[in-house]
Computed example of a mutant assay.
Amino acid sequence: MTAKIKQIEADGVTISIVNYDSEDYMSLTDMIKAKDGDFFISDWLRNANTLDYIAAWETMNNPNFNYGEFAIIRQSAGANSFKISVKELLSKTNIKCLTAKAGRYGGTYAHKDIAFNFGMWISPIFQLYIVKEYQRLKEIETDQHNLEWDVKRVLSKVNYHIHTDAVKNHIIPKSKYSTDKQWIEYAEEADLLNVALFGCTAKQWKESNPKLSLEGSNMRDFASINELAVLSNLESLNSELIKSGVEKRIRFNNMHRIARQQLEILNKMDVLKSIKKQSDSTYIDEKKKLE
């Protein structure tokens, strides 16, 4: 698991969260610190209700779940001598709701559905803290996503008209195409920027992504904020070079070089962090002020 680590704090306990296969997994190793006394994750797994819950989740979410082997393990639940580790459960039943991570944030991680159940085993109040803080994290992430979408929308429009006006006023009058085909000039200039920045034309992207193309998407919809910032700069630059009558080949070479240079600089920055306040609770707090 090589995902970015996120963290929440529930009742004074810091809990790491990783995204694995597009799902959030919480650290049970962190969570068990909230339980008084010497308890281990294997103690939770001895519980028949725990195993039933895991089996239900796996049946719903994991087509490769080895229910037969799991049923054999379940029969032993409740016996004083019964004990099973996460590692054994993983190897014998191919469950995917639990996993292990090595390294700095190592330990046992569980899918959020299972982690909430584990929180209840620790204590009902602790489980409620976890649910509340997790919901808060998701709300913050949603606000950040919406902010990123707004920024990308603005950036994609910043210099678009400047660029198309340069084509209209300085290329169209000299166009080799008939009036009904002069749109090709606009497409060729747009692709000059696409190739300089993204390395392919709009047509090549559509051919490589037919499903997305049919849905009305294009390569710029999937560009990062940094790429759109550079694209905006290239549109402005290309419009000035067009006005100056610079040959297309020379314009492309300059823009390709500049695109690489600017991306290298911007990729070292966190553009969103420079736009939003430093507090991760900014968006929620602002909403509450309006209520």
Rank of each mutant, 00 (worst) to 15 (best):
K4T: 14
E9N: 15
S16D: 09
N19G: 07
E23Y: 10
L28A: 12
K35E: 06
K35T: 04
A48H: 11
D52K: 15
N61I: 05
N64T: 08
A71N: 11
S81D: 13
V86G: 05
E88M: 07
L90F: 03
C97G: 13
L98E: 08
Y105L: 01
H111A: 13
N117F: 15
G119D: 07
I122R: 08
F126N: 08
Q135L: 13
Q135Y: 08
L155H: 01
L155I: 02
V158L: 08
N159Q: 04
A166T: 06
H170R: 05
S178C: 02
E188C: 06
E189C: 08
A190I: 11
L192N: 15
A196Y: 00
K203R: 07
W205C: 06
K206S: 14
S217K: 14
M219G: 09
M219K: 11
L234Y: 06
L234I: 05
E240R: 05
L241R: 08
L241N: 04
I242A: 03
K248T: 03
F252P: 00
H256I: 00
R257H: 14
A259C: 03
A259K: 11
Q262K: 10
L263M: 12
E264H: 06
M269S: 11
M269Q: 15
D270E: 12
L290Q: 13
